[in-house]
C-alpha cells in the first residue's frame, strides 16, 4: 500500500515546514534534457516535493546511459520521458508530471517552455546548451534559468560550483571539464553537478537567489 497524498504531504511538511513545502508544491520546473544531469535533477526535485515537473527529451534509453543516468536495464529502448516518469511516480505518486518527447529548437522553445516558472538546462552537447540558454534569456526573460557546464571526468568534487551570472541565470559546474577531453562522464561527478542545479532550483523556489 502506498501512502495517501495527505500522508506524503504531512511527511514532507514535517521535514520542510509548511511555508517551504507550500512553495515547493506550487512550483513548476521544466527539465530540458533527461541524461546524467536531468534525470538526477528531476529525482531530487520530486523527492523534495516539487509539485509539477515538465520533462523534455527526444531520446530513448541506451545501454551507454546506465553508467550515470537514472534508468534501469529493463528500460532500454524506452523513451527517456516515459522511463523517467515511471520512476518519478514511484518516488512521488502524487506529483504532476507532464512530458514532451521532442527536440527543443529556437523555434519551439518559447511556446514549449513558457508555462514553467523555472527552466533547468540539462543538455549534453555544448552548442545545444548555448542555444537553449541564449534562447531563454532572449525570448523568455522573465524565467529563472539554471544551467550546467563542466562536470566530466574524476576531477575534484570541490571544483564544481554554482555561480550567479545575472539576475535570473545561474551556472553550475567547473566550467571547463569537457566530455571530449578525457574520461567522459562518470556517475558521481555528474550527480554532484546535477545536485548543484537541483539545490539552486529549490533555493530559487524558496525565494533565495544568491548562489
Amino acid at each position: 500500500m502506498i501512502p495517501t497524498r495527505e500522508q506524503m504531504n504531512a511527511a514532507l511538511t514535517e521535514r520542510h515546514g509548511k511555508f517551504l513545502q507550500e512553495k515547493f508544491e506550487s512550483a513548476s520546473v521544466a527539465v530540458c534534457g533527461l541524461g546524467g544531469l536531468g534525470s538526477n535533477v528531476a529525482l531530487a526535485l520530486a523527492r523534495a516535493g516539487v509539485g509539477h515537473l515538465h520533462l523534455i527529451d527526444f531520446d530513448r534509453v541506451d545501454i551507454s546511459n546506465l553508467n550515470r543516468q537514472q534508468y534501469f536495464p529493463d528500460q532500454l529502448g524506452s523513451f527517456k520521458t516515459e522511463a523517467l516518469s515511471e520512476t518519478l511516480r514511484r518516488v512521488a505518486p502524487y506529483i504532476t508530471l507532464t512530458a514532451e518527447t521532442v527536440k527543443l529548437t529556437e523555434e519551439n522553445i518559447p511556446s514549449l517552455l513558457s508555462p514553467y516558472d523555472i527552466i533547468c538546462e540539462a543538455f549534453d552537447k555544448a552548442d545545444q546548451k548555448a542555444m537553449l540558454v541564449n534562447c531563454v534569456l532572449e525570448k523568455l526573460p522573465q524565467k529563472y534559468l539554471v544551467s550546467a557546464s563542466g562536470m566530466a571526468g574524476l576531477g575534484s568534487s570541490n571544483s564544481i560550483v554554482t555561480r550567479r551570472i545575472s539576475k535570473r541565470f545561474w551556472l553550475c559546474g567547473d566550467g571547463k571539464s569537457d566530455v571530449a577531453d578525457g574520461l567522459g562522464l562518470i556517475s558521481a561527478r555528474v550527480a554532484i553537478c546535477a545536485a548543484h542545479e537541483a539545490n539552486m532550483i529549490l533555493r530559487i523556489i524558496s525565494g533565495e537567489y544568491e548562489a
Binding site: S149, M151, S166
Partner: peptide
C-alpha cells in the same frame, strides 16, 4: 561583460 563558454557533458 560575462562570456559563458559551454563545454560538453550532461
Amino acid at each position: 561583460v560575462e562570456i559563458v563558454g559551454f563545454v560538453g557533458g550532461g
